[in-house]
Nucleic acid binder design. Sequence first.
DNA 1: ACTGGTCATCGAATCGATTCGAGGCACGCG
DNA 2: CGCGTGCCTCGAATCGATTCGATGACCAGT
Lengths: 383, 383
Amino acid sequence: MTTRRPSPAPRPTLATVAEAAGVSVSTASLAFSGAGPVADETRDRVMRAAKELGYTGPNPLGRQLRSGRSGIVGVVIGDQLRRAFRDPVGVQVLDGLVSTLGLSGLGVLLIPGAPSAPPSRAVDPLVESAAMDVAVLVWGVGRGDATLAALSRRGVPVVIGEGPRVAGAPLVAIRDRTGIATAMRHLVDLGHERIGEITLPLDASGRSGPLTPERIAQAEKTPATHRLAGVRDVREPVGSWETEASLVEHGRTAALALLGACPGGGSLPADRPTALIAHSDLLAAGALLAARDLGLAVPTDLSIAGFDGLDLPWLAPAVLTSVYQPLAEKGAALGQAVIDLLSGAKPQVTELDVELVIGTTTGPAPDAASPGSRRARADRPRP
Amino acid sequence: MTTRRPSPAPRPTLATVAEAAGVSVSTASLAFSGAGPVADETRDRVMRAAKELGYTGPNPLGRQLRSGRSGIVGVVIGDQLRRAFRDPVGVQVLDGLVSTLGLSGLGVLLIPGAPSAPPSRAVDPLVESAAMDVAVLVWGVGRGDATLAALSRRGVPVVIGEGPRVAGAPLVAIRDRTGIATAMRHLVDLGHERIGEITLPLDASGRSGPLTPERIAQAEKTPATHRLAGVRDVREPVGSWETEASLVEHGRTAALALLGACPGGGSLPADRPTALIAHSDLLAAGALLAARDLGLAVPTDLSIAGFDGLDLPWLAPAVLTSVYQPLAEKGAALGQAVIDLLSGAKPQVTELDVELVIGTTTGPAPDAASPGSRRARADRPRP
DNA sequence: ACTGGTCATCGAATCGATTCGAGGCACGCG
DNA sequence: CGCGTGCCTCGAATCGATTCGATGACCAGT
């Protein structure tokens, strides 16, 4: 015997089936694809032969080569997967995207983004060589993005979510700026004069700390910068703290810093902020926990507003005041943009609406003699 | 003019480059792949021609057809994406998987599992027709799984995580049973006699409520059943509540039910459990919140133990007593199993160790005169 | 009876790369 | 000067399907 393997019966191909059915390959193909006229009797014969041979349908690789399409959409995960999905925001968008693309038979390929800071020009090998019809860049796209450059070099069309406008690429965004401005105005209407801000990361550098004007100036267009602008459209915050990631623990750290809490645990300064506005709900949740740590009642002593409109049952009985954004719809819009792009439509800019949803974490400023509004107090629970 | 399109300069192929460089296609291929001997001067010429033509490397589709490999690993997400990834457990495993596969140049394709209950024989179209070299089934694989059946019909090799043993398929699991038994013994050693149990979903039916013996009997081999067994290896719980998903809110509901909390809010029954053991940390977190709602001090009035060993900073100052499982390693082991399978190795069963990590949520039973152990109280913080 | 038309089927080209065996050229050694 | 030996390069087959144009059979109309 020549080879030792027990003849693993090489998978049948369309040719095998055609021969067994006594028809030509082209007829067999027609029978399977449904395109073109095939006599019922012939189709039956082909199908029967296929079943007998254990042929389960055309090999996708052959089809893909012929059609020039892989049916795969690459989704570039900005950060490490583990971190990107620790905020439910990313998960929900991805869910909407996967669902929408699934309806068109498209699959989602997960592609890790650059390992760390922008200086690193390294790009995941998948970006360079994986088969994909379109790539979706959602989290933290920079204009000088190495991934973006590599993709356009390859000629892979790109859909951008929440990033800079790129020529020829559809963009899906939400009204970050006006949305957070609404929340800010809500706080101001409640009489708050000293408002602290907890920001999303401005870039992938992983730094955190007080936000400086220079840092704002050099920042790229990201959700964070839009939200910064929206906040300032209403009022300059008395303090602003940049976080390294949109996670609860960083929100807590930021809140402690903004409130002037000393490590020793002394009393808070008299001119501490009476309200905090956070660029994300997870950050706001962290602020809420910090308030509990410090013994501050929310919203009596401190008001907290977030952004995203997540369902965070573990904050109960508190319900965050937050700017709701339609996350699944955002994913769906990204998916639709992909489909449109593939069908040759002109790239569009989609901008989704957001809505301020008032919860139980915002109320009149403690030092305001006559609060401007009380409507936010509707269903404040009592423990 | 015949066609109207502004001649979008069809992407160059290897043939184009070869011609431009004045070499044959095979030589050009050799120059790119690095296999086979090519004179430096020739390689340079090819590369220069490629750069001039904007050729960025071999078309993956052609390569894939030739090699018969797509370089894609399908990962079947049992549930809806949104829900599957709301528990960080899934995310961390996926992260480990993606990282490991990435080292071998393999990409991960996300495939939604069956839409809902087992009766539905529907399978995502990607399962039927997407190109993939291997599929990974991680969450909630049943033996009669329609997805599993479809894949094996197609001849796609499968790697199983946390499920039944399937012939020819590598399996990666953790020591669920002994792990949770350790936690259970810890509670018993602390003097707890009435222990309530909060279980993971036994299947994808979405039902929840008191766990009945019949339900246990008819359950498939899943992490939930292993953990059920582990708990009972030590002691029969006084009550067991099945949840519909491993999420905080369901843990809270289950805990309220097990503790006998009336909707009206009366006092708890005297024979309420003094400890709760949950099959996951998110469920345990929900139980902790329920305890806070009810005014029960943890661990003085109620001990709570979980499973997973997640980092849950928002539970601070509490630190869950939990059975730590190496999630990223589990993902890595799945990835390694995939790689081994592709290189033709015999399918192995990998079982990872877990470890009980004692936090601040377990302590001596309130009614135990002489607690068996106090070591769990080491770093209990005081607010 | 011849022509026009329809319908089912087939042959062959094509997608873009990889790979194997063969061939050519130059150099070195006898 | 002739021949053997490497080292490069090339041609052609191959992976598995899709698709276009051609062919042949059969029917109806004039």
